[in-house]
Each structure stands twice: as structure tokens, then as C-alpha cells.
Nucleic acid binder design. Structure first.
Lengths: 218, 218, 218, 218
DNA sequence: GATGAATGAGTGTTCATTCAT
DNA sequence: TATGAATGAACACTCATTCAT
């Protein structure tokens, strides 16, 4: 019990720090967030930071991890009810766009900070690869080089996400990108358009605080 | 006369600074280049910097401008001999990939520094837009939304460039990307492939120092 | 009974700390050893340290004490079989040099740390004083000022020890120093040389872990 | 002239820093002097320090250098009028003791700080070596190993200096040490005593601020 | 007595910017 | 215009010490 309590307390403070870091990413005008900003926001002593992280990057990586994990949970909850590879891809892309819209700040942060932002979707990338491969095996897709195609799809999605977050593109760009992706995978124009425009399946009711699932404590 | 001398001198010093900044981008291991590094490299007093730039970013933007300008010159020299919109696009893309390959360092710099890296191709973007529009008008291309398509093409090109520079993609990705782009624009598969795989027209003989055309002075 | 257990436990923890501190002195590259390093090494809570020591210096002084004590035990075991003051001094010096050789790290630690390193031999100093005085009384030595002579002898020994540990002097310096000391005390050259060069009497068989006798627990 | 002025100004600030560092060594209770202490004392901005020194140690080494240099100047002024190797050694030692007496704090500083204190007299050591060698060649001294003897002499002098500065020895220790050293070098007792007790030759009139010759500016 | 999370003053160091010359 | 010494706020990071449990 003693141990448990301590462990909880420790976990609690860590959460405070990660939470503060995330808040600052969203609020901060400048890209450079200092450790002292984080600890002050977390209402915690300066040195406390170093009980949980060895370096500044680590706390932001922790935020990134939380983000990826919660996003994964949500998107997988949707995907598991779907069968058709094309539908899965269309829905995944659109879900990604949707949640990305709420996170402009975050997007620019991971894009321009020194963080391994390119890996923000790394697990998703593997998933994307699998999606494509299964579609190919099922005779649904037709691509020359699966790996390259996956890479390019990822690039397209990232681009659209970023441009959306900057207001350079309209909301319709989400559907349009999905449509182009599906066509790249070999679907006929009409099918691609139909799939891309079909409405999202109802997401499990769930209150979303800013980045999905990043609620602190509870 | 006196005035001319002064003007030249001023211009000269500015060039020295921009040149030094560019060199440092290529050489430096770390992303953070200080003004003092720049002025020392330019063999110029610290304060001199502020006669030409108000802020650190400005000097890097100047480098960026030079870069864009010289790239423009070169690519336009190639383009002016071409007529077919599809060919123009294919050639432009491939030329862009080629020169980007020589500039990995630079690419990562504009991608991860605080600079408005997204605009590296902004003038090109407009050109790209024109290319697409002319193709559409000529009945060669078929796209729903020209603006969105152009944006997505840009995103794809940037993605491939970056991934190439990181070694995540093979050289064939250049042709493959061009091919996908052409198909996105509505060309049939075989035509797209043929165009994408056709060799580059001979570039005007020209010794290229590091980034094309960025030679200082003259 | 309860009391005894507590007392033992308390003693035990103290030993753990002192032991850890000593290990760190030997192993550590840097001169600055933090309390947290000590407690971690001792597998003891951070706060526990302050149950036994008020300040960081105190734990190192404790190490010093242990060291002196164990050295005393050993050297006295040798000395008690000797009668002649000159022989006693020669043997003591040489024994000191010998054990110092195994403890380079330690030597530099007490020399350059803030510890009262000058007192490392303070008990020995008194002993040294006695040795000289008895030699004088026995008519074996001839010195003007016993106290000063003892001080200078101590200085010479320390110097040779330190220089040996730094590799600035050869092993023969041990004999040479002993010889000079004996001559300082008034012995004729030949006698001094003979005594200084005579081999050490056999030390009681005894396995020596690192610093003599500093084994913890038992 | 412009250049000269700048150079002077620059030199001036450097002196301010070195001067402040030296003062702090003398005044400070604790061994650890921070850069900010130095800059505040020098009435200079924090960053200014790094225009002159790359690291904290450097400023203290600068103090050490100044000290050695000025000491050298003085002692050599005395030595150059002397011929006899034994007298030279006696006088040099005594002069060293005298000036060391004024510098207790400094002595403990170089002894216990991380500075290469062992080299404080390094040039002197070489000089000492020469002194001994010349005495040997002149048939005045008789030593087995010149290098070892020099090392030991240095050790004795350092020891006496330090103990004097701590008040552990009386002033007579200066003469006594000189006497022992001369005897170590092979002089007969009476000669050694006579030389060691002879008064210092008159030193050139000279106002001595704390450590000889360390006056700032003028 | 034992614990270890919390602390915050302190460290050495960097650097964009100013300004007298 | 050119200079470069001066600046001081800011930085990431350390660590002896406290104290509630």
C-alpha cells in the first residue's frame, strides 16, 4: 500500500508535467517551450522535472506517445467493424483528417520541432501498409510497389492535414484526398468517389477533450 | 561615384552574410546557427549584421530566396523548350527531385527550422498551378479541383523529396511519384508511365556549385 | 533486545553508506560525488543519509577514519616486533609507501577534495613523533627540533607518495626517501642506506581487499 | 589608434576579471567561487566573462600565471647577484617562504582547488634542478639522484609553506627547512646551518601589494 | 528509522541585441 | 557604415536538503 501510494503519487506528478507540456504546445505562440515554463504550469518545482525526464525532449515525446496511443485506440475501435480494405482505408484517412483538424497547433509543433515528428503515425504507417497489402491480395487494389505507395499515401495525408490546419485548404480536401488515394490504389474513379464521400460510421459516443483521450487523471 | 561605391560596398557585405549563412547551413551539424557564427564566417563585425537584417530569420530567408531564384532560372531554361503540359510537368518534377538530391542538408534545414519552409516552392506552386490549368484547358488533364490538385501534387513532391533525402526511398521513387502525379491528372496508366520514365532532356551544360546558381559575387 | 536489533540495524546502515562512499571514491572518474550517488550505491533511501550524517563531508571523513584505523592496525602489527627506533621508522615509512601505491585514487581524492586531507596521517604523526623522540632519547637520532623534524618528515612522505601515485617518481623513490629521512635524523649515510634498502619484514599473511582492512561488515 | 584603444579596453576588462578572481580567492571562505561572483565583483556583465575565458578554470589559471610570473621576476632579481650554488638555493628557498607567508589563502586555494597546483612552481622546479646540478658539478653538493632529490626538495618546501600558512609551524621553520635541504645536498651540518641562518640580501625596494606584482592596471 | 518525491537556489554557459567609437 | 565589447535574460540541468508518510 505504501508502495502503491508512492507509485500513484509519482505517476500523478508525471501526468501533471505531460499535461502541462501538452497545454503549452497548444497555447504557446513560440515553438521553444522551456522546462521552467512546463514546471511552472504544472505548479511543480524546477527540479521535479528531472525526477521524471532526463531531457526536455523526453516530455514532448511522452505527449506524442499519449497522443498516438489514444488516437490508435479510437481509430481501431472504428476499424474493427469493417471488412472491405478500401472502406477501411477511406474511413481511416477521414478519421485522421477529422481529429487532425482539432489539433492545428499540435500538428505544426510536431512538424517543425526537433521531435521525430515524421514518425507520428509510424504505427499507423505499418497499419496502412497492411491495409494496402490486404487490398492487393484481395484483388481490390492494384499497385506496382506497395512500400512506395504506402509512403506516398502517408505523405499525401500529412500534407493535406497540415494545409488544412493552416487554412490553406477547404474541408472538402479531406474527401478529395481520400478519393485520390483510392484511385492511386487502382480503384475506378466512381468507386473511389463514392467511398470517399460516404459518411463516417458513427463513432462510439465519447467525450473528446482536445486531443482525443489525453485527459489527465480522472 | 562616391554613392556608387557605397552602394556596392553595402551590397557586398550583405552578400558576404548571406553566403556565410548558406555555408553554415550546409556544414553545420546542429540546427541552431548563431548570428555570431554567421558574422565570424563572413569576416565581418558582429554589429554589421544589424545593418542588413533585423533578425536572424531574415538572413536565412534571404538564402532561401537566392535558392529559389536560381532554381527557377535553371528549371525555366529547360521548360521553355517544351510544349506538352504533361511533359512539362514530368520534366519539372524530375528536375526538382534531381536537384533536391544534392541538397539533403538544405532540405532538412528548411523542413525543421522555424523558417517558412512550406513556401520553398511557392513561386513554383503558382507555376505548377498554371501547368495544370493549361493541361486541363488543352484537354490533356482531367481534374475536379485544380487548386486542390496542385496542392496535393506539391505535397507529394515534397514528401518524396524528404524521404529520398533520408534514404527511406529508392531512386526509382522519383519516376514513380511523377507517374502517380500524371495519373492523378487523368493520364492513362501507360502514358503516365512512359512519360515518367522518359529520360531528362539534356540540361544546358553548366557547372553547378553546391546549390544551383548560389555563387556569391560575380 | 529490541534495542539491540535497532542498534545493529542503525550501525549496519551507516556501514552501508560509508562503504558506498568509499567505493565511489575509488571508481569515480570525477571528484564530485553526490549524496544521491552514495545512497543509490548503498541501496538506501535518499533521506536515510541524514539519519547518520549532517553533511556530505562527514561521510567522507568517516571513510577516512576507517582507512586510518585499518592502516594503523596493520602497521602496528609489524611494528610491535621491532625494537630499534631507526628500523621502526624505516619499516613504517616503507610500509606506508607500499600501501599507498595501491591507492592512487584515494590519495588524489584526499589531496584535492575539500577534506582535511592533511590529517590523513595525523595519528601516525603522533606516532612518528614518538618514534623520533625515542630515537633521540636512545642516542640514535640527533635532531634540533623534534616537532619540526617530524612535520618535515611527514611532508616528505606525503610528497613522495603523491608523486609516486602520479607516476612522476620511480619505485626506488621509496627507499630513497626513507634514506634521506634517516639521514635527516642524524644517521650516517651508510647506515641510513642499509636500513632503507633492507627488505620489509614479512607481513602477517592477510588477504588485502583494496584499501587495507576496509572490509565492511564481518 | 582605434585598434589600440579597443585592445586596451579589452585588456582592461580582462584585468578586471582576473583581479576580481584573485580578490575572491583571498577573501572567500569557501573554495567554490562562481563565475557570477567574479563578474559581479568586477562590475561587469555575466556574459562578458566569456569574451575572455572559455571556462571557469581559465580565469584562475590566469591568476596563477600572473602570480608565478611576478614571483619569478622578483626572485630572479635577487638571484642574479649570487654565485655560490648553495647560497643561491638557500636564498631562493627563504625568499619563497617569505612571500608565501603573505599568501596563506592563495596557497590553500592552489593546493585544494582542481587547478594544476602542483605546477605552481614548475618553472622554479626546473630552476631548482639546475641549481642542484650546478652545485654537483662544482663539487659543492653530493647527491645520488639529482632528479629525485629535486623532487623531494620541492616537496619539503611546499610542505613547510603550507604548514606555515596554517600556523602549524613557527617562523623558524623556514630556516630549519633550508638547513635540512642543504644537508640533504651534502653540505656539512655547520655550513648548512650558517647558510640557512644568514640574513636575506636586501630586496630591491618595492611596495608589495598582496601577492607580489599583481597590481592591476596602473 | 526508513523513505524518496519534492524542492529551488544555484551552476556554467549561450546569444540576440545594443551602442559608443 | 563598420565595429566588437558589453550585456543580461534565458537556458538546461544539478543537488543538498526537507518532510510527509
Amino acid at each position: 500500500m505504501e508502495l502503491t501510494r508512492h507509485h500513484n503519487q509519482k505517476t500523478e506528478t508525471r501526468k501533471l508535467l505531460v499535461f502541462a507540456a501538452r497545454e503549452l504546445v497548444y497555447e504557446s505562440e513560440h515553438e521553444n517551450i522551456s522546462i521552467q515554463e512546463v514546471t511552472q504550469r504544472a505548479r511543480v518545482g524546477t527540479g521535479t522535472f528531472y525526477n521524471y525526464f532526463q531531457t526536455k525532449q523526453q516530455v514532448f515525446e511522452a505527449v506524442l506517445d499519449e497522443f498516438r496511443q489514444s488516437f490508435s485506440l479510437e481509430v481501431n475501435a472504428i476499424r474493427e467493424n469493417l471488412k472491405d480494405p478500401a472502406t477501411i482505408i477511406a474511413v481511416t484517412l477521414k478519421y485522421y483528417f477529422l481529429q487532425a483538424q482539432d489539433n492545428e497547433k499540435w500538428n505544426s509543433f510536431i512538424t517543425y520541432s526537433g521531435l521525430p515528428g515524421q514518425h507520428i503515425l509510424c504505427q499507423e504507417e505499418e497499419q496502412c501498409l497492411n491495409d494496402i497489402q490486404r487490398g492487393v491480395q484481395a484483388g481490390r487494389f492494384k499497385v506496382d510497389d506497395v512500400y512506395f505507395t504506402q509512403s506516398l499515401v502517408t505523405g499525401m495525408v500529412k500534407h493535406t492535414t497540415l494545409e488544412l490546419s493552416k487554412g490553406h485548404l477547404e474541408r472538402s480536401a479531406m474527401d478529395d484526398t481520400a478519393q485520390y488515394v483510392l484511385r492511386m490504389l487502382g480503384l475506378p474513379y466512381l468507386v473511389a468517389r463514392a467511398l470517399a464521400q460516404s459518411p463516417m460510421p458513427p463513432v462510439r459516443a465519447q467525450k473528446k477533450v482536445h486531443p482525443p483521450g489525453l485527459q489527465i487523471a480522472n
